[in-house]
């Protein structure tokens, strides 16, 4: 459910820039959580300090705007 969503906006034949045919937006996990349940799984303290959250259920990674390298889309 969480992660990102995408949609395909209208592309005009007269658009000045190369169209991005599919646009996406982020939908991180907290949007779906409500009140956090008790006894959820936890990261180890070291891992939690690195990730920015104690809870795997709240962790979300952001890949960044896809970049073109060698003609291929890359998520870095």
């Amino acid at each position: 459910m969480s992660g990102s969503k995408s949609y395909k906006p209208y592309v005009s034949p007269n658009d000045p820039c190369d169209p991005i045919k599919e646009k996406s937006y982020q939908t991180p996990p907290h949007l779906y959580m409500g009140l956090q349940k008790k006894d959820l799984e936890q990261y180890s303290p070291e891992e939690a300090l690195k990730k920015g959250t104690l809870w795997p259920a709240l962790f979300d990674s952001y890949k960044g705007f896809p970049r073109k390298t060698d003609g291929k889309e890359s998520n870095r």
């Binding site: 996990p29 990730k51 920015g52 709240l58 952001y62």
Partner: peptide
């Protein structure tokens, strides 16, 4: 920055 972004989520 990814760490800071995660804190915004929390």
């Amino acid at each position: 920055l990814a760490f800071l972004r995660e804190r915004e989520i929390v």
